[in-house]
């Protein structure tokens, strides 16, 4: 089955089993490896992408649902929120192993696109779906607050 969608603004067309999760289309077909596999059942958030602007676990999103949609991945995420998040992440060296951080950054960026000055509770709600086994949570929280401050100007 042929599926047409965009990834990071570029037109893409794939002919795959329609049940194939978006995660494996991005990785195996398009060789875009920034989006990670962690659990396969939407428990960890390592595979988070933006689907039509909303954060989505690509490991449980069949490619058939993506037809006609716009997908944004860590390789292409852009705009003031993404830049502020990535700069804040870098400034305090948030990552340890780094494997979950694509998903963390996609979730954090989506949060700041929706809430300009998130409270701790907002952060807990938006980020609780993203596991970090290195437990970089203290720094993730700080980096989101830092990014929000940058965006305020």
């Amino acid at each position: 089955m042929t599926i047409n969608f965009t990834v990071n603004g570029e037109d893409r067309s794939v002919d795959v089993d329609p049940d194939t999760p978006l995660l494996w289309v991005l990785r195996d077909e398009l060789k875009m490896t920034g989006t990670k596999f962690g659990c396969g059942i939407a428990q960890c958030g390592a595979c988070t992408v933006h689907l039509d602007g909303m954060p989505r676990r690509s490991c449980v999103t069949p490619i058939s649902m993506v037809d006609g949609s716009d997908v944004t991945t860590i390789e292409g995420v852009s705009g003031p929120e993404a830049e502020a998040v990535q700069a804040a992440w870098t400034a305090i060296d948030v990552p340890q192993c780094g494997y979950c951080q694509s998903g963390q950054i996609m979730s954090a960026t989506a949060l700041l696109q929706m809430v300009t000055n998130p409270t701790d509770e907002d952060i807990d709600n938006a980020m609780a779906g993203n596991i970090c086994r290195c437990a970089t949570y203290v720094r993730i929280r700080q980096a989101i607050h830092d990014a929000a401050k940058t965006l305020e100007g």
Partner: peptide
């Protein structure tokens, strides 16, 4: 000192074993 691997771990460029794709590779 800033860590050497931070930037690649914030823009999706860091390469892990799962990210290795070889020509004709089976999974």
């Amino acid at each position: 000192l800033p860590k050497v691997d931070t930037k690649a771990k914030t823009d999706g460029q860091a390469q892990f074993s799962l990210d290795v794709y070889r020509d004709g590779m089976l999974t």
